[in-house]
Amino acid sequence: MPSLSTHVLDAARGAPASGLAVDLLEGDVVLESAVTDPDGRVAWGSAPGAGVLRVRFATGPWFAAAGRETFFPVVEVTAELTEGSEHVHLALLLSPFAYTTYRGS
């Protein structure tokens, strides 16, 4: 069973996105909810196994709390975990009007 983590960076400010609410979903079911730590990270103990998962980032409330507007109130990334995966790391680079994501190590 793979482990799963995420790291969110505020690319516009060049800093970790700490305090950002993140949900881990399978289908429409929220498996776990977390908040990014001071380094912008969340580490879940393990993913439920092979299959399609979604990671939902509550970017709208996070930007609003900082007095910043954003075009994307939610960023949701869908990924497929395969059998034999040991660790999956999902990185999100975030700015008010753009974002990018990739599978990290």
Rank of each mutant, 00 (worst) to 15 (best):
P2V: 06
S3N: 07
S5Y: 03
T6M: 02
H7K: 09
H7C: 03
H7N: 04
L9W: 06
L9D: 05
D10T: 03
A11E: 15
A12G: 14
G14L: 09
A15K: 08
A17W: 07
A17H: 09
S18I: 00
G19K: 10
A21D: 12
V22M: 04
V22R: 09
V22Y: 04
V22A: 03
V22W: 06
D23F: 08
D23Q: 15
D23R: 13
L24Y: 15
L24S: 09
L25K: 13
L25Y: 13
E26F: 09
G27F: 14
D28T: 09
D28W: 06
V29P: 00
V29K: 14
V29M: 11
V30I: 15
L31F: 06
L31G: 04
E32V: 06
A34I: 06
V35Q: 11
V35L: 11
V35C: 08
T36Y: 02
P38F: 01
D39Q: 15
G40Q: 02
G40P: 03
G40W: 01
R41T: 06
R41Y: 00
V42N: 03
A43I: 04
W44D: 12
W44G: 06
G45L: 14
G45I: 08
G45K: 09
S46W: 09
A47P: 04
A47Y: 04
A47Q: 06
G51K: 15
V52C: 13
V52N: 03
V52Y: 05
V52G: 05
V52H: 03
V55F: 05
R56H: 08
R56T: 06
R56I: 07
F57L: 03
F57Q: 01
F57A: 01
A58V: 06
T59H: 08
G60Y: 12
G60K: 07
P61G: 07
W62F: 03
F63V: 00
F63T: 01
A64G: 02
A64C: 03
A65S: 15
A66S: 05
A66H: 10
G67S: 10
R68E: 12
T70D: 06
F72K: 00
F72R: 01
F72A: 08
F72M: 11
V75I: 15
V75A: 05
E76K: 05
E76T: 14
E76M: 07
T78V: 11
A79N: 12
A79L: 15
A79E: 12
A79G: 14
E80M: 13
E83N: 15
E83H: 11
E83V: 10
G84P: 11
G84A: 15
S85P: 05
S85N: 15
H87Y: 14
V88F: 11
H89R: 09
H89K: 10
H89I: 02
H89A: 10
L90E: 00
L90C: 11
A91E: 10
L92W: 00
L92A: 01
L92Y: 00
L93F: 10
L93Q: 01
L94Y: 02
S95M: 07
Y99Q: 00
Y99G: 01
T100Q: 10
T100K: 09
Y102E: 14
G104T: 15
S105M: 10
S105C: 08
S105W: 08
S105P: 13
